[in-house]
Nucleic acid binder design. Sequence first.
DNA 1: GTCATTGCTTGGCTGCATCAAGCATCTAAC
DNA 2: GTTAGATGCTTGATGCAGCCAAGCAATGAC
Lengths: 158, 158
Amino acid sequence: MAHTSALPAARSAAQDSDPDHDALMERLARAAAGYYRDLTAAAALHGLTMTQAKMLILLRRQPLPMRALAGRLACDASNITGLVDRLEARGLVSRHADAADRRIKNVVATEEGREAVRLICADMRGTSEAFARLDEEGRRSLYELLGRLHPEDTQETT
Amino acid sequence: MAHTSALPAARSAAQDSDPDHDALMERLARAAAGYYRDLTAAAALHGLTMTQAKMLILLRRQPLPMRALAGRLACDASNITGLVDRLEARGLVSRHADAADRRIKNVVATEEGREAVRLICADMRGTSEAFARLDEEGRRSLYELLGRLHPEDTQETT
DNA sequence: GTCATTGCTTGGCTGCATCAAGCATCTAAC
DNA sequence: GTTAGATGCTTGATGCAGCCAAGCAATGAC
């Protein structure tokens, strides 16, 4: 936290003035932990792991090549193979060789896979309730601030 | 929410009016992913896993019994044993039998452990830069909104 | 004392993550 | 074209993280 001493104001400054870097980090950490805890629990209700749920969520709108999935999930490409294997075995996604480049396998969520995403999101009660704690103005601000925190750079992958 | 009418308005509503539940969830997901990606990378610089880093962060202020760690990390108690084993083997934490109840082992971060936390937090450049994208007013709002999202209920554990 | 409860550990099993190595395909350069 | 390199995916090996069931030790209630 606020290091040695020297900065007496910083500590409880969080309440009113510019929140200290660490204080803000702590709250972001809490929000992140809450989100993942909720997602993990909701996914478990449907027999899925958090990582599997994250992948299905990425695929809900459009198919993605395995390579792109590795990028989005920030993990090694070799990881994706097993991940997709397990989801494919359960009929939630399928691989389709790309027409233009036969090295590429596009992973597409099946209807059952998309339905699983819907159910999981609906089961994320903790997060829904958290949002409900804000008024409309609060939700709008939060949405806007989070958008500024992480501008949607990592997008184009198709 | 406000979705009485069937169709088209809700979709891009995120831009201006009350952001729809899913749009807000998506941004929260992005923020959470960004935070953990950054934490994982920073921890890796010091040869630690994300989970190990999370545990050290929890212990930075005060010792906690293993049971409490399981609660905070939202995992099975049996998990903590191995986690603490590995950190203890590296001299970052140590176990101390509780004076009042000898079943309890309090886990305390060593000075080296606390130093590791400091270095890791300092290495979270991505998150720091994200905060820097907001002005002071933005940081204050975000801090306040995140505080309302997750009121600090889960606290007392000592 | 006895017995149920609580805190931690162990063992077994799965999934997730890494790396190194390999095959197939595409691209470019000759 | 043929070769050489780059790129996309898979495999195998290893370690960590997660769960569960089972066990021991200590506490607390009686």
